[in-house]
Simulated assay, not measured.
Amino acid sequence: MQRTKVISFEEARRKHGLNVLGVLAALIVIMFIISVNTGYIRLTPLELLNTLFGKGTDKQELILFQFRLPRIVISILIGAALAVSGAVMQGVFRNDLADPGILGINAGAGLMVMLMVSFYPTTSAAPVYLLPVVAFVGAAFTAALIYSLAYKRHQGIAPIRLLLTGVAVAAGMSAAMIVLTLRLDPDKYQFVATWLAGSIWGTSWKFVLSLLPWIVILLPYVIYKARVMNVLNLGEQTATGLGAHVTREQFRLLAAAVGLAASSVAVSGGIGFVGLVGPHLARRLVGPKHQLMLPASALLGALLVITADTIGRRILQPSEIPTGIVVAVIGAPYFLYLLARTKS
């Protein structure tokens, strides 16, 4: 009888989680429709449908397929990637405040992207498909630096020490980026200002194609490792006792998380707090098990970024507010709330 109740509870929880995923997917579709019709030139629903099926005017096709759709697709991809990256870091470090932006991973990736772009006569001349690779190198170096500085023998990594180390490294990386701006011409300075504000600067299909392989490979891999992450959350000793290769699995998961964050930064700039807010809301909605929490984090991150980008483009037309600023308005108070609740 007790076993039947447990099975019924688990089944009910799973159905609830699947329903939540369905609702989040529907909300993303709604925001997609709203975002497609957000801009200086509006498209009626009928014009939008005609254009999607190839019956629109040349002007409507240019607006939809060359300007709006690539940006919307990138918003969805980077939102999902940053949220899952944050979820992995929180799980591996067992630190609810871990986030690729707060820990300085985004800053390290951004610094390398800026260094690469500075060697080219214009920002558009930089090889787009190499940007995620260069960003990954910078992010991986930053992650290794933070880990080595925060780790204490016989003590491991304390959540607050990891957080403060990440903030300090991020500040150093940001300072280096600001110093670089002193030697840039006006065109590149505008790019730097756009990146630092968290505006989605890669808004063409070539940026989508440069980002897509990283998402297609790393996102399913992380979700595939959901059971491993559940075991790692039990603690290193328990996980080892259950047969998990803790160090190897942590390294692989962190490498995937860094790759997701770095590739996103390469086309989106310094958008923070997505990796913090997404996983926390996902746990509240579907519970701590990563089989449902990771997909929920991805959907929530995508919904957050596409909503923020739509608000930023709509509120001050024809000008726009960088997406990172809109996300920060939501994420910064939530971060302070979580920090106030942290005991150690």
Results as ranks from 00 to 15, higher is better:
5 K>Y: 11
14 R>N: 11
16 H>T: 13
16 H>K: 15
16 H>V: 03
25 A>T: 14
25 A>E: 03
29 V>G: 11
31 M>P: 08
32 F>W: 13
34 I>E: 02
36 V>H: 01
38 T>G: 00
43 L>N: 01
47 E>W: 05
48 L>T: 15
50 N>M: 11
51 T>S: 12
53 F>H: 12
54 G>I: 11
54 G>D: 10
59 K>W: 10
65 F>N: 08
72 I>H: 03
75 S>N: 11
76 I>C: 09
77 L>G: 09
78 I>W: 07
79 G>R: 00
80 A>G: 15
81 A>S: 15
102 I>F: 05
103 L>G: 03
104 G>A: 01
109 A>D: 09
110 G>H: 02
110 G>A: 10
111 L>E: 02
114 M>T: 15
117 V>D: 01
118 S>F: 01
118 S>P: 02
119 F>K: 14
121 P>Y: 03
123 T>Y: 14
130 L>P: 00
134 V>E: 10
142 T>I: 04
150 A>V: 03
152 K>R: 15
153 R>V: 12
154 H>W: 10
159 P>Y: 13
159 P>F: 12
161 R>C: 00
163 L>A: 12
164 L>A: 02
170 A>S: 15
170 A>M: 13
170 A>K: 03
170 A>Y: 05
174 S>V: 08
177 M>D: 04
179 V>N: 12
183 R>Q: 14
183 R>F: 14
186 P>K: 10
187 D>A: 14
198 G>I: 02
199 S>V: 02
202 G>Q: 12
205 W>T: 00
209 L>M: 13
214 W>E: 03
219 L>V: 06
220 P>T: 02
227 R>K: 15
228 V>Y: 06
229 M>S: 06
229 M>Q: 09
232 L>W: 01
240 T>L: 13
242 L>W: 12
245 H>T: 09
250 Q>C: 13
257 A>E: 04
269 G>C: 08
272 G>R: 00
274 V>E: 00
280 H>A: 07
285 L>G: 06
287 G>V: 02
287 G>D: 01
288 P>M: 13
291 Q>N: 12
295 P>L: 05
296 A>E: 06
303 L>S: 07
306 I>S: 06
307 T>D: 00
308 A>S: 15
310 T>R: 08
316 L>H: 04
320 E>K: 07
320 E>C: 05
322 P>D: 07
322 P>Y: 04
323 T>Q: 08
324 G>T: 08
337 Y>I: 03
338 L>K: 11
